[in-house]
């Protein structure tokens, strides 16, 4: 069985006639250590899948398994525990605490996770050794996103979920961020799921899942993933 499995997962919003099927009987699997890109146009249900996988939202029906855990069976405290120990999140808009420095933002994650890595080391690894004591407003977009990644990595998660991580970045900084994510996947053997509407990024993935209108359109393996520097935007 795969590391991550979705079995007939549905997520509905609204009720009665106005019901929207954000995820419509979605089933797929992702292996441990893979870099998986979920690709699709806006409204295809990518973020819904990510939210369900990250334990931020509850599925209407179906089963989601991660390793030996059944995410769909968890109650609120267990979901918190799951997010705390197993999952790292990277957002499109970074969601850093504006009144904490880069280092403190990473420490924020370290505080709640017993197996956390040293925040300073992680920040150095993402290339921010010199900017640790700056506040988010003093950092560029790319730097902020790297802080956000460092915050996720610091927890040493088995699963790293990234929602349009380069969506707010220019191509140059976007490339740096993607290269970092690839490295994380390879070096730490972390399973990385990246959501994007940018088909170019799909070339990076070991696996590419294409979504359309809440359904899986295609789930393909890519035997020769490209390097971040080589892809065209």
């Amino acid at each position: 069985m795969s590391y991550i499995t979705f079995e007939e997962v549905c997520k509905d919003y609204g009720e009665g006639k106005a019901v929207v099927h954000a995820a419509d009987h979605v089933s797929f699997g992702i292996e441990r250590g893979e870099l998986c890109v979920v690709l699709g146009p806006s409204g295809a249900g990518k973020t819904t899948i990510l939210n369900l996988l990250g334990g931020m939202d509850k599925a209407t029906s179906g089963t989601i398994r991660v390793d030996d855990k059944v995410v769909t069976a968890m109650r609120t405290p267990q979901l918190t525990e799951y997010r705390r120990l197993d999952v790292g999140f990277v957002f499109q808009f970074y969601n850093l605490m504006p009144n904490l420095t880069a280092l403190e933002n990473v420490e924020l994650a370290q505080q709640v996770c017993p197996k956390a890595l040293d925040p300073e080391t992680v920040l150095r690894q993402v290339g921010l050794g010199e900017r640790m004591n700056n506040f988010p407003a003093q950092l560029s977009g790319g730097e902020q996103q790297r802080v956000s990644i460092a915050r996720a990595l610091c927890k040493n998660p088995a699963l790293l979920l990234c929602d349009e991580p380069t969506g707010a970045l220019d191509s140059k900084t976007g490339e740096q961020v993607l290269s970092l994510l690839t490295r994380v996947c390879r070096e730490y053997n972390t399973t990385v799921v990246i959501i994007t509407h940018n088909a170019g990024i799909a070339q990076l993935g070991d696996r590419v899942i294409q979504m359309r209108s809440g359904r899986i359109a295609e789930n393909t393996l890519n035997p020769h993933p490209a390097k971040a520097e080589d892809i065209a935007w």
């Binding site: 918190t80 525990e81 997010r83 705390r84 924020l108 927890k155």
Partner: peptide, 16 residues
């Protein structure tokens, strides 16, 4: 709210 939501995502318990 956004800050608190982020903390929630990071795995902070409601109590915390």
């Amino acid at each position: 709210t956004r800050d608190y939501a982020t903390l929630k995502v990071l795995g902070y318990h409601q109590k915390e």
